[in-house]
Design a protein around this nucleic acid. Sequence first.
DNA 1: CACTAAACGAGACGGTACGTCTCGTCTTGTG
DNA 2: CACAAGACGAGACGTACCGTCTCGTTTAGTG
Lengths: 198, 198, 198, 198
Amino acid sequence: MTSRTGPRRSESARLAVLNAADDILVERGFAGVTIEAIAARAGVAKQTIYRWWKSKVDILLDTLADDALEALEWKTGAATPEEDLRNHLHQVAEFFQEPAGQVLQALLGQAQLDKEAARKFREGFLQEQHERDLAGLGEILRRHVGHEMGEQATAYLVDLLMGPLYYQILVFGRPVEKDLIPITARLVLDVAAQGQAG
Amino acid sequence: MTSRTGPRRSESARLAVLNAADDILVERGFAGVTIEAIAARAGVAKQTIYRWWKSKVDILLDTLADDALEALEWKTGAATPEEDLRNHLHQVAEFFQEPAGQVLQALLGQAQLDKEAARKFREGFLQEQHERDLAGLGEILRRHVGHEMGEQATAYLVDLLMGPLYYQILVFGRPVEKDLIPITARLVLDVAAQGQAG
Amino acid sequence: MTSRTGPRRSESARLAVLNAADDILVERGFAGVTIEAIAARAGVAKQTIYRWWKSKVDILLDTLADDALEALEWKTGAATPEEDLRNHLHQVAEFFQEPAGQVLQALLGQAQLDKEAARKFREGFLQEQHERDLAGLGEILRRHVGHEMGEQATAYLVDLLMGPLYYQILVFGRPVEKDLIPITARLVLDVAAQGQAG
Amino acid sequence: MTSRTGPRRSESARLAVLNAADDILVERGFAGVTIEAIAARAGVAKQTIYRWWKSKVDILLDTLADDALEALEWKTGAATPEEDLRNHLHQVAEFFQEPAGQVLQALLGQAQLDKEAARKFREGFLQEQHERDLAGLGEILRRHVGHEMGEQATAYLVDLLMGPLYYQILVFGRPVEKDLIPITARLVLDVAAQGQAG
DNA sequence: CACTAAACGAGACGGTACGTCTCGTCTTGTG
DNA sequence: CACAAGACGAGACGTACCGTCTCGTTTAGTG
């Protein structure tokens, strides 16, 4: 038999750590998220944290995996493609106001400061999310222009769609001006229809 | 008499600190930029640093003031408005590869993690830069559409222009795909011409 | 029925633990004797050690029981009482050079630092050894002075005999200067003969 | 000029550390003397301790230097040499009941367990104390036998004098049986007079 | 040309968090 | 049910920086 003897990883400790990290980030900010504080709040030994995670970035990445995937999912049931796009942008903008969205924002910040954190974050989350954005926007555009777009063209359209929103959030820290959303949505559909992006 | 006696602030110490901070950021990353490291590298006492700056963010902000303002200036001498926009986007994209651009990127990162740093950064740099972007893009658009755009409309167009570029740099850490630049430039001019943004 | 079912205590595990403890003490010193190190070296689970011993002091006490009792036994076959005493002192001095003697020395050290260890050590080893010293020296003195000494008088003579040797070993860490042994032996016999110790 | 600039070592921090170490040793035993506990009790940063001492053994050695030297000094004013010896043995026996004596006992214990501690302890304290014992006993014997003893002979007599006392304290943990003291004192004078030790 | 007085280098100080180590207990299969 | 394996809560280890605080030394005016 391959399965080894002895105790297994404690699921309750794992959840306590993820919740503690999340709570501390919201309450005291990223600088307050120390391993000591997480351990104390979670009622867990530091060694238990170091056994399963290499850094606080890894812990926060794990909280994203639990929380963010569904919150950033594409939902395409609206009457028109334009409405679908507007809905998705609103959904993303609102996500950044929630605790899980603050985790995402903090990780985006840390990724600018620490190359290793950036690599993990991109490989462990952003890449996957980008693929889901490609698929989600691709399906909407197929409905709009009547045929499949090229992958590279869709990628540019994702940048045009998401870029202004992230720019406002990351650079100006604003909760996103609502009027920007219909402009961006309209524009992406126009560009797709005119075939400029290919 | 108002002028007091004794030595004045040492300009050589000031420059040594700014250079040391810059060098350490490039060599060892933001986490390596500690006051102790700056003091050691600059051959300066920690107290001298604390006398003139409140934090390492303030130091890095000072280095930006020296380096970034001209690098992010709008130059409008090209043959067409479209070329002007493309040139500016290339200039910004290239700036992020330089040491001073890495300082900007690090401060953008830190701004996601620390509200006080964010406030200082926005009040001390980003706001001013945004005004220059409004003015720069505004002038180009006036040449393109033949009349003055509204301030809010111009602001949206700045978001549409800069957003995709920042999105690629901050979210994906890419050196910016060059094809995105002409697409973005073209699109902003079209939107301006169609008056969608107002 | 008194005899219970299931496996009994593993004798091989017991011996592996005692040998491992002994080896580690000699190789890495008392501080290196950790339960983890013993378990690893003995190929035994920590729980197995804690099941049968309360502390590393108890383990070392067990190794003494196997090794030290015969090494500190009194042998009285020499030509004269004086020679018997000299032989015994040499035997004790040499014992402290051997692995088992290092265990004894370590436990004597630990007894100065930890009252509980001291209690166990004295009740579990030193008391018994002292009784054997009383008996051993008592018999030699009976041969020397021609009659039985009082118990208290013999006890003082044990102190006079062993004290200087232990003083050199424990206080100065010396391998005992050989000339001290005949002096001490001679002196104890003289004191006994003069009846000073009573 | 040789004297350097900047702040000097804080004497109050030094004393707080030594007192804290002493107090904790008495209250909680040697195992309770951790750097963390000393720092907490002394109201001092751990780094301050590590800056000036390499280990808790070094700290305890420093407390001895302040406390033990005078307590183990030879005082020779009594009516007879025998009384001088008895007084000194009583003084030493009582010293081991005091806090500083417990420090000495703990260091003697640690010296059995840790060769580096033993080396420091012997070079930093025991050697010096032994020289003072040689001088102190030497002077008394000169008065007793009427001429100077050889150094080696005096050394053996120190072993004979102090050995039984240390044997009782270190091996049996007893507060020393008082009757042993006059016996030992008498015996050393006799041996010296008979010239056995040479 | 002393005499202030502030800025400087050096670095000790009380703290906090780091990541590692070992403790003694508890949990999980295996023989 | 004893055993090997090893995860767990606990807490000390020694290190790195934090921001504050003395120290002399140096440097610019002022009287």
